[in-house]
């Protein structure tokens, strides 16, 4: 038996919004310690890894490890029927082929129960190596979203260069070019830790997709090392994270 109750559906909506652009279907791996998800997009360019600890939930019970195959678009449709301040309970019996979602209004005078068909997904899990990132940058999530949006109007490719002076985002296309540089601020909303400078090139449309997670967190952490995938991490309150990995463009 798996049962988890969140006091606010808004958080679940934000999490699903952050996943559904990259993944149409995915498996939630539920265990006693919490809920995990790991999946690549269809083209194997990016990977999403989500972790939510059991103490995020008002009530959490998971008697044995369970994999719930979900169609995220269907889940989005169900979540649209709920109000953000509803409490939500998700429930699935062992070996069940359905997920139950119950929404309870804040005033507790309305309950709505939904059943969502579970999918049998053959999902491959990848081992993500421990990486000592040469550059780690924290910045406001809204700033990162704005930069990704602004650069993608210029070019399909975005170059991210990180040095001790700051982080620079560049795009160069037919209509012209753009460079946006952020330096460390004294008020601490932008911080830059650099062991060695790194410059890598990425597909802007994936970066844009990652910024769907912006409503989850005020801050985003960007980690880079030479010739390895970029890591963009959004914390989920104090209870977990969504991490996006993006393969760099490589010189032919």
């Amino acid at each position: 038996m798996f049962e988890a109750r969140l006091s606010s559906t808004a958080l679940l909506k934000k999490i699903v919004d952050a996943l559904k652009e990259i993944l149409h279907q995915s498996t939630l791996d539920c265990s006693d310690s919490g809920i995990q998800l790991q999946a690549m997009d269809n083209s194997h360019v990016s990977l999403v890894s989500m972790s939510l600890r059991s103490d995020c939930f008002e009530k959490y019970r998971c008697d044995r490890n369970l994999s719930l195959g979900l169609d995220l678009r269907s889940l989005t449709k169900v979540l649209k029927c709920a109000s953000g301040d509803d409490a939500v309970t998700i429930k699935s019996a062992d070996k069940a082929d359905k997920l139950q979602l119950s929404f309870e209004s804040a005033s507790m005078d309305r309950t709505a129960d939904y059943e969502l068909r579970l999918l049998n997904l053959d999902q491959e899990h990848l081992a993500i190596p421990e990486t000592d990132y040469a550059c780690v940058v924290h910045m406001p999530a809204t700033e990162f979203a704005r930069i990704c949006r602004d650069l993608s109007t210029f070019s399909e490719s975005v170059v991210i260069a990180c040095t001790k002076d700051g982080i620079k985002f560049s795009a160069n296309g037919e209509m012209g070019s753009v460079n946006i540089k952020l330096s460390e601020t004294s008020k601490g909303d932008v911080s830059v830790q650099v062991e060695e400078p790194v410059t890598l090139s990425f597909a802007g449309r994936y970066l844009n997709t990652f910024t769907r997670a912006t409503p989850l967190s005020e801050k985003v952490k960007i980690s880079m090392a030479p010739e390895v995938p970029l890591l963009v991490e959004y914390p989920i309150e104090d209870y977990g994270y969504i991490r996006y990995y993006l393969a760099p463009k490589v010189d032919e």
Partner: peptide, 14 residues
């Protein structure tokens, strides 16, 4: 000339 890298070149199946 650059081409898009593949994550499977970096992360191996468990």
């Amino acid at each position: 000339v650059t081409s898009q890298g593949n994550l499977k070149d970096f992360f191996k199946p468990k």
